[in-house]
Amino acid sequence: MTRPARYRDMVAGGIVTLAVTAGAAWLSAKPEWQSLEPGMALVRISFTHGGDRSGSCRPLTAEELATLPRNMQRKEICDTHYPPVTVELDVDGQTVLARELPPSGFNGTGPSRLYQRIELPAGSHDFVARLRDNPQTAGFDYENRAQADLVPGQSYVIEFKPAQGGFTFR
């Protein structure tokens, strides 16, 4: 059998236990971690948007219509897959992001998604965001610009909301 505990064990063991616990408490908040360098701001451009599928639609032929039950008869048949979306972001005249976003989902039936972090030094910046979602047309379908004076630690968010005319900046 192990020898019974002595008074000394309580004191010495108590001190060690206290030291370990205090050390753990200290490490529970320090040393601090610098997640974003001082003087930097964070720009995030993010959206979920499906490319324009209307180009893939075609009228149903008479034979096709005949094979469909009455309640499923439609004029047009469209591809369930989304075309890719192309996005670009310029900051102060420099292109910092240029991407073709494939549709999501295992077989491309989901919209394209973007979530991108861009760290910028605080100060005034010009933003130009462009997006092309229609494979039928040439060039970008949307282009929006904004100017912002970023303070250190600011979160600046660029989203794409076609209902509001394209990109929103805030």
């Binding site: 908040a29 971690w33 610098q34 997640s35 974003l36 360098e37 630690g153 979160s155």
Partner: peptide
Amino acid sequence: DLATVPQRVGVDWF
């Protein structure tokens, strides 16, 4: 505050 991003955080190192 989601209008900002945390710059320096006290991390629980465990």
